[in-house]
Structure formats: structure tokens, C-alpha cells
Design a protein around this nucleic acid. Structure first.
Length: 364
DNA sequence: TAGGCCATCTGGTCCT
DNA sequence: AGGACCAGATGGCCTA
């Protein structure tokens, strides 16, 4: 950690001080002036006393004379401030400053370590001290809750727990660390209805071909298919917005889907594979973080479960069980053009490949 | 430009 | 006496 030193002359003295030679110590100007007129052993006012005298006037002395007699002060008698003593005190002060610096550096080092142990650690954007402590407090509290309840919260709930009392900037960092949109951490009333609906109850897929009729591909049991521009790609590409539930994130309104049969993958589907999985209890009840995603292999009809590190094969004629972790899944036949690192971020029900919205043209 | 954050200095207090 | 700790003051840097 780079140590920024104060650029005044005193700091330079502190740095250059070796502790062995008193003669090298530059005394403060006002003290020096006082000492100049005195001999080595002559009495000199202490800085504090000097301060008082500077602000004192003859009137004050007169007041002092009028004051009733004050009993003698207890404690050790004040020592005379000789040049040697001032130098000694100055040396002590310089050493104390150095210790204080080291102490603060140690404290900062400990804070740096703490920063690495709380979520949303970033080398580029360092959390402030106070925000680090607050986030650590929230993190401990959130983990304690998980231990007590034995239930992993969904990512938004988790992020909200982490963000209690944090500044907006830190909340954004927390959201980014969990790959959430910062808007999800705002009070519901503060973000647009469309976003609220989007984040809680819809998933979106890009629609590269304007002629695609998504009605034929994704139709809901009680279909209400809306098309809009995605908030995440700034409306550049058209997006099919498929609301599947109006319920809260925790309880999905659609019937729980534990399997998706081949019948669902026909040209006309009641539910898309992804949607079916999304509509299951899975995504809404699952604690999902950025690391909790499914990696799809575009060469085979299978996916890799990142938790169990097991590859799951699809069999087209069979029902496809929902994975144990209830992550969403999709027929890989539909994803042939995906890059291997394609992920499904279940936090937001957003399907993404790299930085772009999920491409579904093989579905058509 | 105001406000937040930070490093540093400083004097006071407590403890060994 | 000296070290650890603390809080106030101060000035620099950065950002909205």
C-alpha cells in the first residue's frame, strides 16, 4: 500500500528523523524564538503556556491578582521547560507520530483484508472504510440468518440484506458483484413498473428476426405475450417479453413444473423449455448468485451443472427432469449457435451470452 | 464548489 | 516514562 506522506516540512522531519541526534530536530518557530533568548538551562514557557500568554493581556494579569487564593495544585510540580527538555519532548512527539502512522497503517491493512472477505471486492473501486465495515456487518448478519434458517435466500433478498444502510454507490457495487441490476435493490416504488415486472416476473429473449412470431413459439397457458424493447440492451434489438406470472418472486403463479416432456418442444408449444423451467418453483425460490448458472455445451444435448460438476444429458423422447438445484434448463438443440460460455443468469431471468442478449434464432 | 474520504499531526488519557 | 489508543483539527484529493 503506497504511503502518502504529508508534504509539509514537519512530516519531512518525521521521516528523516533517526532518533539518535537531537541536534537535527527543527523546533517549531515559536518555540525556537522563545529559546533563542534563553540559556541552555534557563526556564522556557511550554507551548501551551505560551499560547495562553499570547492571548493574555495586562487586564488578565490584573484579574488574576484579584482572584481569591487558589490552593496549591496537587500532583508533580511542572518541570522547567529547558531547551533540552523541549527537544526531548519534541523527539517524543516525533516518535509518537511515527507510531501513530504505523498504527493507522496496520488498521488500514486490516481493513484491506476485510475488503477482500466481503462481497463485491474490487481492486479498481475500493470501498471506503465505513462502507467496508457496514457491508461486513450486513454480510455477517445475512450469513447468520442463512445458518439459522437453513434457507438460502434469493439473490435479490440477499443483496438487499447486504445493502442495508449503504450508500448508493456501494449498493451499486453489491448489485454488480451479484450480477444484479442495481434497480432491483431500490425500493419498489422508486423504479418503473415495467422494470419491476421485468425483474420479478418475466424473462426476455432477443428477437433478431423481426418476422419471428413468438406467439407460435412461446405461448402461455393464459397467454399474454408482449413485445417491448429490452431495458438492458437499450432498446437496440427487439425483445420478446413474456410475462409468465404476476406473483411475487418467491411464489410463482404458474403450476410447478417438474418435468418438460417432448410434447412441449413441438412447433407449437404451450411453454418453452426455458419458460417451463423458469416457471417452476426453481428460479424463484433458489438462492442464485453470479456463480450459480448453468453452462451449456453446444455440441451435445446436455448441460453442466456447476455445483455437482455433472453433465446431464437430454433424451429427446423422455421427460427432462428439473435439475436438483432447480436451475433453468433449455433444449440444447435450440442453442446450437451458442458459445460454450453462454450462461443463464437466473438472478434476473435474463438469458445472456457474453454481453449480448440471448440469441434464439435456432428456435424458429 | 461543496462534501466525502483520507492521511497525518496532535494532545489527552489510560495502562504497564 | 513511554506506549497504545482515541478523537479533534487540518489540509489534500476526488467527485457529483
Amino acid at each position: 500500500m503506497p504511503i502518502k506522506m504529508q508534504e509539509n516540512s514537519e512530516a519531512e522531519q518525521d521521516l528523516s528523523f533517526t532518533g539518535s541526534d537531537l541536534d537535527d530536530i527543527d523546533l517549531d518557530d515559536d518555540i525556537s524564538e522563545l529559546i533563542e533568548s534563553d540559556d541552555e538551562d534557563s526556564e522556557v514557557n511550554s507551548p501551551d503556556e505560551n499560547k495562553n500568554q499570547k492571548s493574555s493581556t495586562g487586564r488578565k494579569r490584573k484579574d488574576k491578582q484579584e482572584e481569591p487564593k487558589v490552593p496549591k495544585k496537587r500532583g508533580p510540580k511542572k518541570k522547567r521547560m529547558t531547551k533540552a527538555r523541549i527537544a526531548k519532548l519534541r523527539l517524543r512527539r516525533v516518535k509518537a507520530n511515527a507510531r501513530e502512522r504505523n498504527r493507522m497503517h496496520g488498521l488500514n491493512d486490516a481493513l484491506d483484508i476485510l475488503r477482500k472477505h466481503v462481497p463485491c471486492y474490487s481492486k479498481t473501486q475500493k470501498l471506503s472504510k465505513i462502507e467496508t465495515l457496514r457491508l461486513a456487518r450486513n454480510y455477517i448478519s445475512a450469513l447468520s440468518d442463512i445458518l439459522e434458517s437453513g434457507v438460502k435466500p434469493d439473490s435479490v433478498t440477499f443483496a438487499k440484506a447486504l445493502s442495508k444502510g449503504l450508500s448508493q454507490n456501494t449498493m451499486n457495487l453489491v448489485a454488480g458483484g451479484l450480477q444484479l441490476n442495481p434497480r432491483t435493490l431500490l425500493p419498489e416504488s422508486t423504479y418503473a413498473k415495467q422494470y419491476q415486472f421485468y425483474y420479478n416476473n418475466t424473462f426476455e429473449v432477443s428477437k433478431p428476426n423481426q418476422n419471428v412470431s413468438y406467439h407460435n413459439v412461446y405461448s402461455l397457458p393464459s397467454p399474454q405475450v408482449a413485445y417491448s424493447h429490452s431495458p438492458i440492451n437499450n432498446g437496440v434489438s427487439p425483445v420478446a417479453r413474456i410475462p409468465y406470472s404476476h406473483s411475487s418472486p418467491v411464489s410463482c403463479g404458474l403450476p410447478s413444473c417438474t418435468s418438460v416432456s417432448q410434447a412441449n418442444f413441438g412447433n407449437v408449444r404451450d411453454t418453452s423449455p426455458l419458460q417451463a423451467a423458469t416457471a417452476s418453483s426453481s428460479i424463484q425460490c433458489e438462492a442464485v448468485t453470479s456463480s450459480n448458472y448453468m453452462q451449456y455445451d453446444n455440441n451435445m444435448e446436455r448441460y453442466m451443472d456447476p455445483r455437482s460438476q455433472q453433465t446431464v444429458q437430454f433424451f429427446p423422447q423422455q421427460s427432462v427432469p428439473v435439475p436438483h438445484d432447480c436451475s433453468p434448463y433449455i433444449l440444447l438443440d435450440d442453442l446450437a449457435d451458442f458459445s460454450p460460455d453462454t450462461t443463464i443468469d437466473t438472478d434476473m431471468s435474463i438469458i445472456s451470452s457474453g454481453s449480448s442478449i440471448f440469441d434464439v434464432h435456432r428456435i424458429i
